[in-house]
Design a protein around this nucleic acid. Sequence first.
RNA 1: GGAGAGAUGGCAGAGUGGUCGAAUGCACCGCACUCGAAAUGCGGCAUGGGGGCAACUCCAUCGGGGGUUCGAAUCCCUCUCUCUCCGCCA
Length: 442
Amino acid sequence: MFDIKWIRANAEAFDVAVSRRKGVSVRSSDLLAIDDRRREIIGRLNEAQEQRNALSKQIGQAKAQKDEARAAELMSEVARLKDFIPQGEADERAVEAELHAALSTIPNLVLDDVPVGTDESGNVEYFGRNGSAEIAAKLRAPKPSFVFAPKEHYEVGVAAELMDFETAAKLSGSRFVVLKGQVARLERALGQFMLDLHTTEHGYLEVQPPLLVKDAALFGTNQLPKFEEDLFFTPHGDSRLALIPTAEVPLTNMVREAIMSEEELPLRMTALTPCFRSEAGSAGRDTRGMLRQHQFNKVEMVSITTPETSLDEHERMLDCAEAVLRKLGLHYRVMNLCTGDIGFGARRTYDLEVWLPGQDTYREISSVSVCGDFQARRMEARYRPAGEKQAPRYVHTLNGSGTAVGRCLIAVLENYQQEDGSVAVPDVLQPYMGGLTSIGGK
RNA sequence: GGAGAGAUGGCAGAGUGGUCGAAUGCACCGCACUCGAAAUGCGGCAUGGGGGCAACUCCAUCGGGGGUUCGAAUCCCUCUCUCUCCGCCA
C-alpha cells in the first residue's frame, strides 16, 4: 500500500511507474483530490475541537470556583459546536475510508530492472547478479536425457498406481488427489528435506502457523480486498476464517502491528504447510495430474528485513530456493517476471521453473518476491533503528517458496522415472525414505 | 458451553468525570560527579495526523468500535483478546 504523502511528493514518478503495470488506470491526481478533501475536513474539524477543548477547560475552572453562572454561559457558547463536531468526525471517517480503499487496490511499483511485458512471454531469464548462462549451467543439473519417451507424472508406473484421482474426486471433487504408499512417503520426504535444509543450512526459524486466518491478515499480504475469489472461507461465529492460500500469509503477518528492534532483523522464518486455493480463474487449465490442486503442501520462506538489506535478501532467498533443486539434481531455470506477469504486491519476482520431461516444458515450482514496505504499510509492521532514539520505520518483507512440494514431487517422478515404471530416489531423499534407492518397478 | 476478573507508554504499575498524554519505578539516551566504573544527582524519552521555511503549534489516541456529557483513561453499550473456576473434548 502506498503512502499518500509519498504520492504527493512524487506525483509524476508515481504516474509513470504505475502505468507500467497492466490494467491499472489510477492517477495521482485522483488520489490527491481525495487527500485534499481529507485535509480540508481535518483542518475544519481540528479547529472546532480546539475551540471546544478550550471552552471545556474554562468550564472546569469556573465550576471549580463555584461560578455556576459563568459555567452556564460557557456551556451555551460551546453548544453551537455540538452539531458540527460529530458531523466532522463522520466526514473524516468517510474520507479516510475512501482514501484507504483507493490506495488498497493499487499494486506495488516494480523495480527498474523488472522487464516490461504484457504476459509471461515477456519474462526474462535471470542468472544472478554476477551470473551468466555458463556459470548457471555448471551449478545446475543438466536436462536429463531418456532412451525412452518420458511420461507425464501421473502416467509413470509407480504413480499411476499410487496417485489416485478417482478416489479423491469421490471424496472432494476435482483438483484433489489421494497419494498412497511410497508416493505418499516420497511427498513427505520432500517436505522434510526442504524444511531441514532451510532450518539447518539457511538459518530460517521453523514455524508451525495456523492454517486458518482472519481477514486482517489477508489484507496485510494483499489477498484482500482484490483477490477474495481465490480463497476458501469457513464460517466462524458471526465472522469467517480463510484457509491459507500460502504460508506467506501467517508467516508475514506474525510481525503485523509490531515494532521490532533492529537487532531482531533479518527475521527469517520457514514453514511446511498445506495451501488451499479455489483456482477460480483457471477452469480447464492443468486438469490432468496434480499440477494444479485445491490443496497442496508447500515450504515457504519469509524474511523481514531493514529497507537497506531487502534487495540483498532477495538474491539470498533465491539462492535458498535454488539450493533445493540443485541438491535434488533437478534441472531448472530462473525467470525475472515482467510487468505483465508479476504479482500485485511484489517489487520484483524471480520464478524458479523446473524442467518436466514428461510435459517437455518448464513449470513454475517457486516464486521469490521482494515487496519493499508495501505489505509492512498494510500490516503496520515497523522496527526501531539501532542507536540514537529514532522514529520507527517500516520493515521490508520478502517471501518465496522453497519449494512447492506437490510440484516438486511431479518433477522428481518425471525426471527420475525409469523405463520399467519405477522411479529412482534422489540421493538427498534416501535418508528420508529409509534408505530406499528406488520405488515401484518389479 | 456456563460463571467471574482483566486489557493503561519498551516493561511493571497508579489513576473512577475537569488543569491527565497520563504519577511512580525499571529500562534506555544525554549531562554532572569519577582516573574509570558502580552508586548518586539533573535533564530527556509514545504513536499517528493537520498547519508552519523553522522555532513551534493544534488535533486524535489509555485493547477495537459506538454512545452519554460542555468535558471520558474514568460512566454506558458492543466486539476482540487474556486469565481463573466449572463442564465437554482430540
